[in-house]
Nucleic acid binder design. Structure first.
Lengths: 151, 151
DNA sequence: ATAAAATATATCGTTTGCGATATAATTTTA
DNA sequence: TAAAATTATATCGCAAACGATATATTTTAT
């Protein structure tokens, strides 16, 4: 191995990639009973914060493009969690709203964040160490958004 | 919005998910010319460290299951980057080795890590702040590995 | 007012990621 | 040693991601 910088263990990005995947896996025991996936859970979080959002709103919030969000919403509509109606002022837009089922799911989901925290806390010393990463991750995300827009 | 803990902005996991995706996007300008994807780049990193590894070795190293790694390797074989041969002592195993093309790609790839660092540094104050996350991410990954194995 | 540009969403094709299951070879057990 | 369990890899099906492209609607420019 000639190049030290090419070693996997020196790569922050690989850690982010792995941590993100394993985190999604840790949600499985909590999301499976609700019948939703992690990205679908994210959409629910967005809609629980504000009812009535366009596809754009959601895709901006999740930093995902419409070509990812549209099929996601279509599956969620089929599952009876949301409704998608044509916009009235602007007919190009799709207005996404929660169904009763989707709204009711919030009650079942409200303990998930603390369950996850507790689960991780079992295997890690302090939750503070994790929350300390948040400002750095936010800066990284903002930086990457710009970087990716330039190319 | 009734539940504070369900707010997207309070979620570490969402940040990991987003940071990981955007990071992969930042690799695009460097990996596209090589004709490989980010997960394929990770396989290359593993193989540049040690020639001759089994599918298991690679999947352990990347924390991916064989049902992800096998098709990945099949595509890389088709692209002429690796060879996959039946194991001699244990015929169940597949031994993965680099082709000349795969080996040569290391030279073209050796600047990628510093390019990425520089790119991110353009938009973020200090690289130290990022490297400070590494031990925490490692702990998190180890913890999640255990958490996920229990379920 | 009409053509051109911009915008919002959708569709298509490919690669990943992963649960479930299958297949083949090796090891263990009875 | 033959059957059972284990191990290594592969296959299948579905949900994401995402680049590229298409469609429909609105806005802008001429």
């Amino acid at each position: 191995m000639a190049y030290e910088q090419l070693k996997l263990d020196n790569q922050l990005c690989f850690r982010l990639y792995t941590a993100a995947r394993l985190t999604m896996g840790a949600y499985h025991p909590y999301l499976d009973p609700l019948g939703i996936t992690y990205p679908q859970y994210l959409v629910m979080l967005v809609l629980w914060e504000h009812e009535k959002q366009t596809v754009m709103d959601i895709s901006h919030r999740l930093q995902l493009d419409t070509n990812t969000v549209t099929p996601l919403l279509q599956r969620m509509e089929k599952a009876g969690l949301i409704k998608r109606t044509k916009g009235k002022e602007d007919a190009r837009q799709r207005i996404v709203t929660l169904t009763d089922k989707g709204l009711a799911m919030q009650e079942q989901a409200k303990h998930i964040p603390e369950c996850l925290s507790a689960e991780i806390l079992n295997h890690i010393g302090s939750i503070e160490e994790l929350t300390k990463m948040i400002p750095t991750l936010d800066k990284l995300i903002e930086g990457l958004k710009q970087t990716n827009n330039e190319h």
